[in-house]
Amino acid sequence: MEGSREIGTYYEAVAARYLASRGVSILEQNVYNRGGEIDLIGRDGDALVFFEVRYRGPGSLVDPASSITPSKQRRLVRAASFYLHKHNLWDLPSRIDVVAIMPGTVRKYRVQWIRNAIQAD
Rank of each mutant, 00 (worst) to 15 (best):
38 I>M: 05
37 E>N: 08
89 L>S: 07
113 W>P: 01
84 L>W: 04
4 S>C: 08
89 L>I: 12
35 G>H: 00
57 G>K: 03
117 A>M: 05
61 L>A: 13
62 V>M: 11
106 V>C: 10
79 A>E: 03
50 F>C: 00
88 N>Y: 08
41 I>A: 00
27 L>V: 10
116 N>I: 05
89 L>F: 07
41 I>V: 12
15 A>T: 06
35 G>E: 03
110 R>G: 06
45 G>L: 11
56 R>Y: 04
106 V>E: 08
33 N>V: 05
111 V>R: 00
2 E>K: 15
56 R>W: 05
16 A>V: 05
79 A>I: 05
30 N>K: 05
92 L>T: 13
60 S>T: 14
60 S>Y: 12
29 Q>K: 12
18 Y>T: 05
109 Y>H: 13
29 Q>M: 06
92 L>Q: 09
100 A>I: 03
17 R>E: 12
82 F>T: 09
83 Y>R: 03
61 L>C: 13
30 N>R: 09
38 I>F: 04
28 E>R: 15
23 G>Q: 06
45 G>F: 09
5 R>P: 06
16 A>P: 00
51 F>D: 01
68 I>K: 08
100 A>P: 00
25 S>Q: 15
54 R>M: 08
54 R>D: 00
116 N>F: 04
59 G>Y: 07
110 R>C: 03
20 A>Y: 03
115 R>F: 15
86 K>C: 09
104 G>F: 12
70 P>M: 12
78 R>C: 04
67 S>N: 11
61 L>N: 12
3 G>V: 10
107 R>F: 10
24 V>S: 05
104 G>R: 13
27 L>G: 04
104 G>C: 11
6 E>G: 09
49 V>Y: 02
69 T>W: 11
114 I>Q: 03
32 Y>P: 00
39 D>R: 01
37 E>R: 13
39 D>M: 02
9 T>A: 10
121 D>C: 10
52 E>K: 11
20 A>V: 05
3 G>T: 12
17 R>L: 12
100 A>S: 13
98 V>I: 10
21 S>T: 07
65 A>R: 11
15 A>Q: 02
97 D>N: 07
113 W>F: 14
70 P>Y: 14
75 R>T: 06
35 G>Q: 02
28 E>S: 15
68 I>S: 06
52 E>N: 10
8 G>I: 06
10 Y>T: 04
24 V>I: 13
102 M>D: 02
76 L>T: 01
21 S>A: 15
7 I>K: 11
108 K>E: 12
73 Q>C: 08
110 R>W: 09
43 R>G: 02
104 G>Y: 07
109 Y>D: 09
96 I>K: 02
36 G>W: 09
91 D>S: 15
18 Y>G: 02
85 H>F: 15
16 A>L: 00
36 G>M: 07
78 R>W: 03
44 D>E: 12
27 L>R: 07
33 N>Y: 03
46 D>R: 15
113 W>N: 04
20 A>F: 03
84 L>A: 08
85 H>V: 13
12 E>L: 03
43 R>Y: 09
44 D>T: 06
51 F>S: 00
76 L>I: 08
66 S>R: 14
95 R>M: 04
18 Y>L: 05
67 S>L: 09
92 L>I: 11
41 I>K: 01
68 I>P: 03
33 N>I: 04
89 L>A: 14
73 Q>F: 04
32 Y>V: 11
103 P>F: 11
15 A>M: 06
31 V>Q: 02
56 R>I: 07
71 S>W: 09
103 P>K: 15
